[in-house]
Design a binder for these strands. Sequence first.
DNA 1: AAATTGCGCAACCGCATCATT
DNA 2: GAATGATGCGGTTGCGCAATT
Length: 283
Amino acid sequence: MGRAPCCDRANVKRGPWSPEEDMTLKSYLERHGTGGNWIALPQKAGLKRCGKSCRLRWLNYLRPDIKHGGFTEEEDIIICTLYNKIGSRWSVIASQLRGRTDNDVKNYWNTKLKKKMMAAQASHYKNITSSSSGTTTTPNTNLIHHTPAPASLIIPTIKTEIYTCDNFLAPSNEGPSASAPVNPCFMFGHNTPFPPAGLVGPPVLNGNAGHYAVSPHDDASTASSSVTIENSSNNYVNWSANGPGGDDAFFAEFFNDNYGYQEKTGEGAPNQATVAANVWITF
DNA sequence: AAATTGCGCAACCGCATCATT
DNA sequence: GAATGATGCGGTTGCGCAATT
């Protein structure tokens, strides 16, 4: 047996609210407040509506200081950022935007912003592929895209993903695994197309170590370089290049040339490049 | 001009969580 | 601790309008 409905559907009005109903509800709430009980409110206010419907109407439409439409670029960024971070928790996202309701943000995302973001992604990907050598390559959906993000829509990705060198195992060696982290097919996998579309290379993989990235100048038999991409509020790329022939300079140059990362200078930040803008990652 | 399609938005539904008894 | 009721939330639906055919 299902749960009993919150109100008698046969005796409540449904569908769009009339201006008279709006006025009745608004004036009642302004005079008495909710009284802590939405279920009893419609009867007290003289409305033939379900309490839940009254609550929704008030929160999404009648409440003072509600804004409708006209989302700004700044709001777009906040929504995208938070959606990346926490997913579809619209009430939390809406709470960060003055005058916006969860319903409004949800509708805006589903009807406009999602498409806008996807179009921006597609455009950015197209730019990358069109600037490559002209050979046709299969789009790599795990490719990591880097700045600059499309000027019209910067998508700050807050999702924290830390990849260590072990995440770059070659598909041919390891095969897909449900529990394995997403292989970004960066530039260190065995038998993965390299360079990825639009990028130049090649660093080569140390075949013995299997998991490690090494520069073309490293001694592949002994070097054990690794790269960590930390994509969070303190976006940066880390690398280490240990062992004989380990080539820090190569990685510094590689990230600078291909992604616009600027190597940090000074003590305390060796082997680390800060990202000039936000990192944009497609999974 | 009429029919069709697509879009935006308000509202509804049902489940999850919280509060009270 | 269990049962019950109220509230909050996210997914979905359906209507009205505009654009397109």
